[in-house]
Nucleic acid binder design. Structure first.
Lengths: 230, 230
DNA sequence: GCAAATTAATGATTTATTCAAG
DNA sequence: CTTGAATAAATCATTAATTTGC
C-alpha cells in the first residue's frame, strides 16, 4: 500500500534524479538505434516536469473554497459542468448518426463541432463522446430488444431467430434504420496531419489561411490529444 | 446489409441534401433556445462537411523505397508509420511508471512529450497510449503470474492466498514493485484549458510566448482531441 | 551471412463498463 | 433514469526480433 507515498516524493523532492542518459536497463538486446535525433542528449532533468501538486489549476473556483492544504479534490471543475446539448445539436448529431456516421475522424469532429457551435457551447470531445455513447447504447438497446424478443416469446413467436426487421423505434419515437454496425470492423484510420486542404474552401474561402509553417498544424484525433510537433 | 452503401451515398452524392435548418425529421418542437451564441443561425449546410472519401491518404506505398534525396529522417513517416520509441524514451517512461504515474493528465502528457521529444520524434498521443498499454499489460502480466502461481502450485505452497510479495520479476528480469493499481479508481479529472502558466518557466523562459489571444490554447487531454473553442 | 517467413512485442483503435451529474 | 464523461478490456495492425533455408 501507499505506493503513492513514494510516488509523491519521487516528484516533489530531490530523490536523487536518475539523471543523465538514463542508464536504465537494457530493454532489448538490439541495435542501439542510433537515431538519437542528433540533438544533444539532454540529461533529462526529471525535476523539470511533472509537478503533480501543481496540476489541475481549477481556476475560477467559486469563492476559492478548496482550502490550501486540503483535499486536492482538484476535480470538480470550476464552473465547468458537463455539456448540455441543445435540441439542434442533438438533432444534427442524430441525423449524422442515421446517415451512417459512427466514428467520425478528427477532421469530421472538428467540423461537426464548428457547426454545432452555432447552436450552443460545445467542444470536440463532446462530439467524440456523443458518438461513442450513442453507438454503444443503440447497440445494447438493440441487444436487449433482441434478447427479450427471443427470450420470453410467449411461445407463439418463431423460436428461430426472426432477426427483427431492419427498422426499429428510436428512443424518441423516431424510426431509425437498424444498424448492424459490425463490432470490430477495423481498418486503421490514418492520421492526416494537415489542415484539411480539401475542406478548406468550406471553412473559409481561400483567404490567406495563416500559413504559419505548419507550426499550428495541430490535429484533432479520435482518442486523444495532439500537437503536431514534427 | 449494405447499409453502408446508403451511408456512403448520403455524403458523397447529392442525395437531396437535407439542406437548410435541417428539415430532417421532427426533432421536437422546442424553443430555439435563444442562446444561439449570437451568430446568425446558419442553416447548417450539410454538404459543408464530412467528405468521407477524402480521408485516409495512405501515401508512400512501401515500394517507394525511400526516395533518393535524403531521408527526411525527421518525418520518417511520410506515410505515417507508428511511433518507434528510442531507448531513452522508453527508459524515461518506465521510470515515470515506476514512479507511480499511470494516467497522466493533459498537462503532464504535454510536458512528457516535450521532454521525450529531445530524444526522438514523438507526439502526445504516443505518450497517452504508452501509459494505457503499459498499465494494461502490466496488469495482465501480473494476473497471469498470480494465476499460474496459484494454479499449478506443486501442492506444497500454501493453499490460501499467499498474496505474493510486493516485488516481482519484470519480463525483462527487472525487479519492479507490484502495483495494486486498483481498477476503477475514478475521480473525474478536470479539463484545464490553458497553457500551464506554472510550468511555463520550464518549457521556455519568459520569452514572448506568442500570446496569440488564446486562439491557440488548444488542449491535450486523455481521451481525445480538443480545440478550446469556448 | 542474408533475406523471406515466422513469431513476439507493442503501438493504435474500438468496444465494454463504470462513474456520476442532473 | 438518462446520458455525458472516463477508464478498462479486447483486438487489430505494424514493426522488431528471431528463425529458417539457402
Amino acid at each position: 500500500m501507499k505506493v503513492h507515498q513514494f510516488a509523491r516524493g519521487f516528484w516533489d523532492q530531490q530523490h536523487e534524479p536518475p539523471s543523465l542518459t538514463l542508464g536504465c536497463k537494457r530493454l532489448r538486446p538490439l541495435a542501439p538505434k542510433l537515431q538519437t535525433s542528433g540533438t544533444d542528449t539532454a540529461p533529462f532533468d526529471l525535476k523539470s516536469f511533472i509537478r503533480p501538486e501543481s496540476g489541475p489549476r481549477k481556476l475560477g473556483s467559486p469563492d476559492d473554497k478548496r482550502e490550501p492544504a486540503a483535499i486536492h479534490q482538484v476535480e470538480t471543475h470550476p464552473g465547468g459542468t458537463r455539456w448540455n446539448p441543445t435540441q439542434e445539436q442533438i438533432g444534427i448529431l442524430e441525423m449524422l448518426y442515421r446517415g451512417g456516421m459512427r466514428t467520425p475522424n478528427a477532421q469530421q469532429i472538428e467540423q461537426i463541432t464548428a457547426q454545432l457551435g452555432k447552436y450552443g457551447k460545445i467542444e470536440g470531445k463532446n462530439v467524440f463522446y456523443w458518438f461513442q455513447n450513442h453507438k454503444a447504447r443503440e447497440r445494447q438497446k438493440q441487444k436487449r430488444n433482441t434478447t427479450l424478443a427471443l427470450n420470453h416469446s410467449p411461445r407463439s413467436t418463431a423460436p428461430h431467430l426472426t432477426i427483427t426487421n431492419p427498422l426499429t423505434q428510436d428512443i424518441r419515437g423516431e424510426v431509425i434504420r437498424r444498424e448492424e454496425d459490425s463490432p470490430y470492423k477495423r481498418k486503421c484510420r490514418s492520421w492526416t496531419f494537415e489542415w484539411l486542404e480539401e475542406e478548406k474552401k468550406y471553412c473559409r474561402s481561400s483567404e490567406e489561411v495563416e500559413e504559419e509553417e505548419g507550426d499550428r498544424t495541430l490535429e484533432l484525433f479520435p482518442l486523444h490529444p495532439e500537437i503536431n510537433r514534427s
